[in-house]
Measured scan of single mutants.
Amino acid sequence: HMTFVALYDYVASGETDLSFKKGERLQIVNNTEGDWALAHSLTTGRTGYIPSNYVAPSD
Rank of each mutant, 00 (worst) to 15 (best):
N30V: 12
N53Y: 11
T3H: 10
P51V: 01
Q27F: 13
F20L: 06
W36L: 06
L26N: 01
S58I: 15
F20M: 08
D9M: 02
A39V: 14
L42Y: 06
Y54I: 08
T3F: 12
V5N: 03
D59A: 11
L18H: 02
G45D: 05
D9V: 02
R25I: 15
K22I: 06
A39N: 00
T47R: 07
S52Y: 15
G14R: 14
D9A: 04
W36Y: 08
M2I: 13
H1Y: 13
I28P: 01
V29Y: 12
S58T: 12
T43P: 02
D17G: 14
I28N: 00
K21V: 09
T47M: 08
I28G: 00
E24L: 00
T43D: 15
R46M: 12
E33L: 14
L18M: 14
Y8G: 04
T44R: 00
T43I: 08
L7T: 06
D59S: 12
H40E: 07
E33V: 11
G48K: 01
A56S: 10
T32D: 10
T3A: 07
D9H: 03
S13V: 15
Y10H: 06
E15R: 08
N31L: 14
D59M: 12
N53E: 09
I50L: 03
D17I: 08
T16A: 11
H40A: 06
F20C: 05
R46T: 05
M2G: 10
D35V: 11
L26R: 00
A6E: 01
R25G: 04
S19N: 05
H1C: 14
E24G: 02
E24F: 02
P51C: 05
F4L: 07
A37P: 09
L26G: 00
M2V: 11
S41P: 00
R46G: 08
T43S: 10
A6I: 03
T43V: 10
N53F: 11
D59K: 07
A56P: 12
Y8S: 07
T3E: 12
T32Y: 14
Y8K: 08
Y10K: 01
D59E: 12
N31D: 11
D35N: 11
R46F: 09
G48Q: 02
Y54H: 09
L18S: 03
V11Y: 10
W36I: 06
D9E: 06
A39M: 05
P57A: 11
D9S: 06
A12N: 04
L26A: 00
K21Q: 11
A56H: 09
W36A: 03
A56G: 10
S52Q: 09
D59Q: 12
Y54D: 02
F20T: 02
A37E: 04
T44H: 02
D59W: 13
I50M: 03
W36V: 06
D9C: 05
P51T: 02
